[in-house]
Nucleic acid binder design. Sequence first.
DNA 1: TGCTGTGAAGTGCTTCACAGCG
DNA 2: CGCTGTGAAGCACTTCACAGCA
Lengths: 216, 216
Amino acid sequence: MSSEPKSKHIPQATVKRLATYVQVLKNFERDNVEVVSSNPLAEACGVQGSQVRKDLAYFGEFGIRGVGYHVKSLMQSITSSLRVDHEWPMVLVGVGNLGRAMINHINRASSAFTVKAIFDCDPFKIGDIVSGFEVMSPSEIQECVEKMHIDIGIITTRPERAQRACDHLVNAGITAILNFAPARIKVPDTVNVEYVDFFRNLYSLVFDLTQNGRNS
Amino acid sequence: MSSEPKSKHIPQATVKRLATYVQVLKNFERDNVEVVSSNPLAEACGVQGSQVRKDLAYFGEFGIRGVGYHVKSLMQSITSSLRVDHEWPMVLVGVGNLGRAMINHINRASSAFTVKAIFDCDPFKIGDIVSGFEVMSPSEIQECVEKMHIDIGIITTRPERAQRACDHLVNAGITAILNFAPARIKVPDTVNVEYVDFFRNLYSLVFDLTQNGRNS
DNA sequence: TGCTGTGAAGTGCTTCACAGCG
DNA sequence: CGCTGTGAAGCACTTCACAGCA
């Protein structure tokens, strides 16, 4: 049960799977499971047992040989290794349908991630109250980001506006961006962007449908 | 400009990138660019030129040596190779915040994918009109799917309800599922599931933030 | 005995480098 | 001459297989 991190390169894929492990471990905890071994955990996450063991081993030795992993302490170990055991405040740009949905969705679903302020370019929206937040002008992003020590920005504008929203965020000092707009954005290489574009997933589903020879 | 598909295994990653190429090619088309070579196209998509050439080569020879790719015909070639040049009707289960946002978002953004009917378990929601669609009971999914020849289902319920929504879809004959609920779901192996879980992306952003030694 | 942690082997995707064609 | 299409090399992640510990 030591927890020395093995200083080695950690694959992005591993980090993303750890998010899933936490999600699934919460279910085990809710069902009052105290200990789980790698195989049932892997099964519930849709991966191999050896994958789970290797992923966890990047961060320390969390298991007990012959027994498995203690559910609560494993969750604690993962969230603390990834620094998601405390709150990450975020700003969101683009208060349309998608933006509104994301504000509620994120603030309800997770205690680690919270939208703290929202912005829109449309002057008719500025001053509106959405989910308890006042919609502000992008010119105020910088002050807000500095005051609240915010590192993460979310873009939920229409695709044509994504680059402008991005530039506002970058100028304000944001270094991590989650982009929901179906558009590629250009950033300096000090800034990290993650894309959420589910049309990619739909393309993939359709390709498999047509490959496995059924529909037209 | 021949287009014999090289019958070989095609990586999922390639199929997903093709979705991005189409997105970016639309921008070139709008800016009246007629011909583009692999490097500028790759640059705009955030990948390597050789990657673009290899991805396209899986499906045929679409380029002209010494010149590049004709924007319009390349888009046509990709969308027809992936069978996204005609409409794919879909059903959606879970008419909450996220569901509402997705209905509008998808129906506006793409002509290839259209939500055709929406469902919810909550009896108080059934009969409501949302974005022009009547919310129906899950018991009606099967009839709807058969009548409209629908293959793709979208889940936007809360996580606790995701498995139930999934079971309704599978029983109705759906074989491709896009799951936005932050929960893993179990399906028979004839059914394909794509997960859209942006908490995974947030974990990844936070990990990079803390690795590159800045914030706490 | 059972399950973890881990080097070694395997697999699949990406990048290179260049032949070949317009 | 420039850019595509492609085998070969490289790289990164996954799976195997088992030593080692509770």
